[in-house]
């Protein structure tokens, strides 16, 4: 475990806490894409299959349980909670995310470390995570104004994968046989997708103005 990876996991955890806070405190999920939340729940379920078979460390196990539980809780909240679900922007959240699931699954069948179910699902979860934010970014573009908590949520989510890239560089330099091309390339693509959001987020932070995304 190195500082970059710990920082990455903590910002990832922070993004989920910010989102839960926003939904719980305001009892509203306006501006949040349910499709992105469903994709993240799928990412964690597909990736953490080894939760009960391979024990890595207490930290690893606890974080996996937290990520699976929180992502399912958010999806449950947005779909079933009587108060929250009313504020869901159903007509704005129209990204066809089933194409993302299909496309990344096919890619995982072709590009994986080993043609076993667990490895294919792991690669699938890595590719899906890279594109899972797209429905959310499209929703933000459509709704134009970004409320602070949602903006912070997306910002921390982007920052976490950026820290992971530093972690992979560090591990590549310090561990003789560390190669993780699938996660690395996919992680770079994922961080790249946030680039434009980061740009507007930084501009709004510098001008101390409201975050506006060009429609």
């Amino acid at each position: 475990m190195n500082i970059f990876r710990l920082a990455g996991d903590m910002t990832h955890l922070l993004s989920i806490i910010v989102l839960l806070l926003k939904i719980y405190a305001t009892k509203s999920c306006s501006g949040i894409s349910l499709k992105t939340q469903e994709l993240y729940a799928l990412v964690f379920l597909a990736r953490y299959l080894d939760l009960f078979t391979d024990f890595i460390s207490v930290y690893n196990t606890i974080m996996k349980v937290v990520f699976i539980a929180s992502s399912l809780a958010i999806v449950w909240c947005m779909r079933l909670h009587p108060l929250v679900k009313r504020s869901y922007d159903k007509e704005l959240d129209t990204f066809r995310h089933y194409f993302l699931i299909g496309g990344t699954f096919v890619l995982a069948l072709v590009l994986n470390e080993k043609f076993t179910l667990q490895e294919i699902l792991w690669a699938f979860s890595i590719y899906l995570e890279a594109v899972a934010i797209l429905p959310q970014l499209v929703l933000l573009q459509r709704s134009g104004n970004v409320d602070n908590l949602t903006g912070q949520y997306v910002f921390f989510l982007g920052a976490y994968r950026a820290f992971y890239i530093l972690n992979w560089i560090y591990r590549y330099l310090t561990e003789p046989r560390f190669t993780r091309w699938i996660a690395c390339v996919s992680g770079i693509v994922q961080t790249g997708i946030y680039a434009d959001f980061f740009y507007y987020y930084f501009i709004s932070w510098k001008n101390n103005s409201k975050l506006k995304l060009p429609a």
Partner: peptide
């Protein structure tokens, strides 16, 4: 044979 990279990352 190269031991499979253990998936120790989240």
């Amino acid at each position: 044979a190269q031991k499979e990279q253990e998936k120790d990352e989240l």
